[in-house]
């Protein structure tokens, strides 16, 4: 059973075609890159996959199950969206605690998870800081941690390192790659960075809402990238 299958997905905003006839699958343990210029439809595709918005037509399957079932989406997916969506008036700890309760953890388990991940991702000293007081890099680590609490099988990252300096980016990727290798988590990401594209096993290249290329990333980099 494939972690993700997208079948005949179309998305129209009135007359505007945001996505046209999208078909692809992702294999278990892959790092799958969705790339393309600004406005190509990457975030729209991510939102459809995570059932945040409905496609105009077509279907998305997660381990063979239709993603209209919200419980499937919450169980298998961890999602870091393009915009930071932590509550800036609350502390790191409060944000994470709130999230854990919504994911059905007991308050004891929540505190355990917060402790474990804040130590692992080096933000323990910021736990009592309000989000507005911490750096962009730390915010991303907090979001990544938050999305791992429920032990998802598939991690979706929409331009996760945008606006981060080289250090924070390397730090972020160190953990993501470790999750992929050790925990066999499937990664789906969108990116504009060439060094992140190189990390992907396969690439889907979107242009004006259509698939312009799909295949191995080496193939993409040698034969497609730069020529089109």
């Amino acid at each position: 059973m494939k972690p993700l299958e997208v079948k005949n997905v179309n998305k129209f905003y009135n007359d505007f075609i945001a996505l046209k006839n999208i078909n692809f699958f992702v294999d278990e343990g892959e790092i799958f890159g969705i790339i393309g210029p600004n406005g190509a439809g990457k975030s729209t595709l991510i939102k459809i996959i995570t059932s945040a918005i409905k496609p105009t037509s077509g279907k998305v399957f997660i381990f063979g199950k239709d993603n209209v079932q919200r419980s499937i989406v919450s169980k298998f997916f961890g999602v870091v969206f393009q915009e930071v969506n932590l509550d800036s008036k609350l502390t790191v700890k409060e944000n994470l605690f709130f999230h854990s309760i919504l994911y059905d953890f007991s308050s004891r388990k929540a505190n355990e998870l917060i402790n474990y991940f804040s130590e692992k991702f080096n933000f323990k000293k910021y736990l009592d800081f309000k989000i507005e007081k911490i750096s962009g890099g730390t915010k991303r680590m907090v979001e990544l941690a938050r999305e791992l609490f429920h032990n998802p099988k598939i991690l979706i990252l929409d331009e996760p390192t945008v606006g981060l300096d080289i250090n924070s980016r390397q730090n972020f990727w160190k953990f993501v790659l470790e999750l992929n290798e050790k925990n066999k988590i499937t990664i789906i990401l969108t990116s504009h960075h060439i060094d992140e594209i190189k990390l992907c096993s396969r690439i889907l290249y979107l242009q004006n809402g259509e698939i312009a290329f799909i295949g191995k990333s080496e193939e993409f980099l040698t034969s497609y990238y730069g020529k089109n």
Partner: peptide, 13 residues
């Protein structure tokens, strides 16, 4: 607008 609702809506709530 800011996308704050997305993670809440994705949760099993």
């Amino acid at each position: 607008e800011k996308g704050f609702l997305k993670p809440i809506i994705l949760s099993p709530t």
